[in-house]
Computed example of a mutant assay.
Amino acid sequence: MEQILEIQGLAKQFFLHEQGREIKSCKDISFTLAKGGFIGIVGTSGAGKSTVLRCIYRTYLATQGSVVYDSLSYGKLDLVTADERQIIHLRKVEIGYVSQFLTIMPRTTAKQHVIDGALDAGFSYEESVVKAEEMLRYFRLSETLWDIYPNTFSGGEKLRLNLAHAMVKAPRLLLLDEPTASLDNNTKLLVKELLMKLKKEGTSMVGIFHDLEFMEGLCDQVYNISQGSFQKSREVS
Rank of each mutant, 00 (worst) to 15 (best):
V191I: 11
K192Y: 13
M196Y: 04
P171W: 01
A164C: 04
L183R: 11
L183M: 13
A170K: 13
V206Q: 07
L195E: 02
L195N: 07
K192A: 14
T187V: 15
E178P: 08
N186S: 14
L173H: 03
T180P: 03
L198P: 08
T203M: 01
S182M: 13
A170W: 00
L195C: 09
L189Q: 15
K192C: 14
M196D: 11
L175A: 10
L189T: 14
N186F: 08
H165D: 04
G202H: 15
L194P: 00
E201D: 15
L176E: 00
N186Y: 11
K200Y: 02
T180D: 08
A170H: 05
L195M: 12
V191F: 11
N185H: 14
A181H: 13
L175E: 05
L176Q: 03
A166Q: 02
S204R: 07
L195Y: 11
R160M: 04
K158R: 15
G207D: 02
M205E: 06
L163P: 03
L161E: 10
G207W: 01
V206T: 06
D184M: 09
H165P: 00
L195Q: 08
G207E: 01
D177R: 03
G207H: 05
N185E: 13
I208S: 11
E178Q: 10
E193Y: 11
L163I: 12
L189C: 09
D177I: 01
G202Q: 14
R160N: 04
L175P: 06
V206P: 09
L183D: 10
M167F: 05
E201A: 10
L183P: 10
V168S: 08
S182A: 15
K158E: 12
L161R: 12
K199N: 07
L176I: 04
K169D: 02
L161N: 09
T203A: 03
K199T: 00
R172K: 15
K200F: 01
D184P: 09
L174I: 00
L161T: 11
K199W: 01
K192F: 12
S182W: 13
E157C: 08
L195W: 09
A170Q: 10
S182D: 11
E201V: 00
L190K: 15
N162Y: 10
M196P: 00
K200M: 04
V168H: 09
D177N: 02
K199Y: 00
M196N: 10
G202V: 10
N186R: 14
R172Q: 12
P179M: 03
